[in-house]
Design a protein around this nucleic acid. Structure first.
Length: 198
DNA sequence: TCATTAAAGTTAT
DNA sequence: ATAACTTTAATGA
């Protein structure tokens, strides 16, 4: 889901640059903006009590984020952190909601993307909570591949690091690596110069 | 089955 | 060069 940059600018959006590791917003902060990635990558994450990271999502060019919290009077349940150097466009809540009021079609698209995310989150949580490492990783990778046009086997190059995969599946790095290798042996995926092909 | 710790090899900046 | 990433092995819950 994304809104044309010209449209966002026409209602008073601003652009901001971030460096790797910079926070765009923090857990417990109050949601004030609609955000959209122009270039670069950002992650939405949490840390549990032991300090282990769980990555909720990784967003790239033209992905929207933070919009799901604009409809509820709640604080952010996660952090948004830049993974690479990136440029983000943001527009304040009031202007964004007003834009939706004037654009029923846009409103529908926003709902559609929220609905899609809700569905994915539901599926992912269910798989992660009651399956073994191999099943969890398979689900995480499959959910990412779903956006890809080519669904043929071994055509999807997993665009994230092993560490990020682990944090997405709720596993430790080493288990992730061993399991990925096991899956390669079982021909569930391929590895070409360190890249995972699914 | 999976996490943790430690150590070392590889790649990217 | 240095940091970031990947891999293997040993050990323990």
């Amino acid at each position: 889901m994304s809104i044309k940059i010209e449209i966002l600018h026409s209602i008073g959006a601003t652009e901001e640059d971030y460096n790797p590791g910079d926070y765009i917003f923090r857990e417990n902060g109050s949601p004030q903006f609609y955000y959209q990635v122009i270039t670069g990558e950002i992650k939405l994450n949490n840390y549990n009590i032991e300090g282990k990271e769980f990555i909720q999502n990784i967003l790239t060019d033209m992905d929207a984020f933070g919009e799901s919290m604009l409809f509820a009077e709640k604080v952010y349940p996660m952090n948004a952190i830049a993974l690479s150097k990136c440029t983000i466009i943001k527009v304040c809540k009031h202007k964004f909601l007003k834009l939706l009021d004037q654009n029923p079609l846009l409103y529908q698209n926003v709902c559609k993307s929220l609905s899609e995310r809700l569905y994915r989150k539901f599926v992912l949580m269910q798989k992660i909570s009651c399956h073994n490492a191999s099943e969890r990783l398979k689900e995480v990778i499959e959910l990412m591949k779903r956006d890809q046009t080519d669904q043929a086997p071994f055509t999807y190059e997993v665009p994230i690091t092993r560490q990020q995969l682990a944090s997405r599946a709720g596993l430790c790095l080493e288990t992730t690596i061993r399991t990925i290798k096991k899956m390669e042996r079982e021909k569930l995926l391929r590895i070409h110069n360190r890249k995972i092909l699914y």
